[in-house]
Write a protein that binds this DNA or RNA. Structure first.
Lengths: 349, 349
DNA sequence: GCCCCGAACTAAAAGGTTTTCGGAAACGTA
DNA sequence: TACGTTTCCGAAAACCTTTTAGTTCGGGGC
């Protein structure tokens, strides 16, 4: 198992407080019953006399008994544990999904085993093995972008749900933000505000996210019969690019009165440059971002109207559906979760 | 999904692909040996003939055998799993610590069970019980701030290491950033750049972080025999407060030539206002932030010189020491991890 | 008195692995 | 041949819990 790994040999558990953990048979003998009865008493089975149950419960409490989930899982085949496999170093997008999942599971006594593959397929394989040998009941795979990723389902004997980045296999269960819809929300809002010369600045076009958001722009403009102001400007997902793109835009299309940006960083850059060039936001030019990255969207001046992908809801939903899939009620397909427009001052009338 | 908690009953595991998982006895019978021999062959014990071992290994490979960690853990008392208990919804500071820990453990075949208590003590107890009943080998507790938190060690039969926020009990093992030292780095740097009228704007003084950073300022100025420009301005940890504080500062102390800020958000606000008031950064006023929150520190103009707490290193170190503690080699005390000054344009000469 | 029944409880098995100990075979030595 | 030694392998116990299949006991019906 590789050089670096083998050096880390597991220490022999020499905790100074070497008290043996209390087991159900300790509880049973303290209560003066058999382990079977103790088990039934603790699990609320009804074929145990009430006085006996009280004795067992009291004994368990006195000893601070906690059932060993390992033994329980070994028997039942369920560990009440799911693996969460992420590829993007838990960056910007992984976190809310994780939180949502943790939230959904935490309520139901599930635990989350976290693995970060850092975008390395070998590491992913490695983590996958570790998770499976720990007998997780299911897996959530969080993509690093909304681009589809290879399916895992062939190799894996437990249900898998993909969040944020869908699986390439449409038979799998995937949850992704509806970026087309999100962009449409943004553009329709700009149209509602009376803007008619709407430009689009976004990230690299090899991102599914960029392409889908552009598609949303196209659709929303088409349904209103309005032409896009200039061509879509595709660059990087950075504030720097936002600044640069704004320069280009102000030169090529001086009469622009709104810019829809592919993310909040770009939007922040656009706002900055627009203001430096003497145009007011939103007075002369309205700006909409994407992601609702609060540190940017609320702290810029003016605060940004932006599209929120509801990632925490997405994560929670994915977790709930994983739960359903574990129960045999899988819901195959790529589910597009609606986005939400957060209106702030950058698009005020 | 209904009334949240109680509706979530564990489904009976009805996975359609109901193939029984392959066990070591499958491997043994395929190889024509006993399970004992198979186990020894797989674990590299030396009392098994080489030809036999080859047969077993081949069988294991053919069946894609993966040992059941539950059974193994039940027997050995070790699960190769640690719990990571965080209180701050994995916010700004939890993530890098988590990453560092995951990194350190991942290499050694350890898995991380993640729990987020959302700052709720009851939820924390709940998660703690869940982790212990899963028989984690140890625990990392990530604080939501550098303020000390109540010790867990009394209630818990496994080693605990505290990261970012230390335990109140000095006998516990804690790793915290050396904020005094970090602030000193920043102020010394400003002095080196020739600044002599240095102000300090920071967050609420009921934060240990704010107090320690201020202490660092005091020490660094004292060792150079320079007086602080005005009193420390304590407000919130926000960009908004940074802007407001900068206004106050420019009024009360017009000759200020440097501002050390308690975090990057404040620094971003200060920079913004300083520039709007017609002073140049760094020409007239140098600004230093804290945290090295990249989205802010690299994207502001000019990019911010800032103190990086090396949280990922801190997390990794904490994990390594937890590992040591599991092996009985604990290192009690509050360990202060050095910070690092990241020099960017906001303090250029 | 006999049988059946239900209530309350227990012994034992099962789950998958590792480890200990004993057994068997092969071989060398007296 | 008898005995000791080495090498290899297997049976069984152990880990902890839940579940199944009894077992015991008392009472009710005949």
């Amino acid at each position: 198992m590789g050089a670096m790994v083998s050096t880390v040999s597991l220490p022999k558990r020499v905790s100074k407080k070497a008290e043996r953990r209390v087991t159900i048979s300790d509880v049973a003998s303290l209560a003066g019953v058999s382990v079977a009865t103790a088990s039934k008493a603790l699990n609320g089975r009804h074929d145990v006399r009430d006085s006996t149950r009280q004795r067992v419960l009291a004994a368990a409490k006195e000893l601070a008994f906690q059932p060993n989930e390992l033994a329980r899982g070994l028997l039942s085949g369920q560990t009440r544990t799911v693996g969460l496999l992420t590829s993007d170093s838990m960056g910007r997008f992984g976190i809310p999904v994780l939180l949502g999942a943790e939230d959904a599971f935490g309520a139901g006594e599930m635990a989350v085993l976290l693995c970060d593959a850092r975008g390395d397929a070998i590491r992913e394989q490695h983590h996958l093995r570790a998770l499976l040998s720990r007998r997780v009941d299911g897996l959530i795979v969080v993509g690093e972008s909304t681009d589809p990723r290879p399916s895992l389902s062939g190799d894996v004997p437990v249900p898998v749900v993909y969040a944020y980045g869908p699986s390439e296999d449409p038979q799998d269960v995937s949850f992704v933000p509806d970026d087309v819809g999100g962009a449409m929300l943004a553009v329709r809002h700009l149209l509602d505000m009376g803007r008619r010369s709407i430009a689009h600045v976004t990230g690299p076009m090899d991102y599914t996210a960029a392409r889908e958001r552009e598609e949303g722009v196209r659709l929303a403009l088409a349904e209103a019969g309005v032409a896009q102001a200039g061509r879509t400007l595709a660059g990087e997902w950075s504030q720097r690019w936002g600044r640069h793109a704004a320069e280009l835009l102000l030169m090529s299309t001086p009469d622009v009165d709104a810019v829809f940006c592919g993310n909040d960083q770009i939007a922040a850059g656009v706002v900055e440059t627009v203001r430096e060039r003497g145009r007011r936001v939103p007075g002369d030019i309205a700006v909409v971002g994407y992601d609702n990255w609060e540190i940017l969207s609320t702290e810029t001046r003016p605060p940004l109207t932006t599209v929120d992908m509801n990632l925490e809801v997405l994560g929670r939903t994915a977790a709930q559906h994983l739960f359903a899939a574990i129960g045999g009620r899988a819901t195959p397909g790529v589910h597009r979760m609606p986005c939400r427009l957060v209106i702030r001052e950058s698009t005020a009338p």
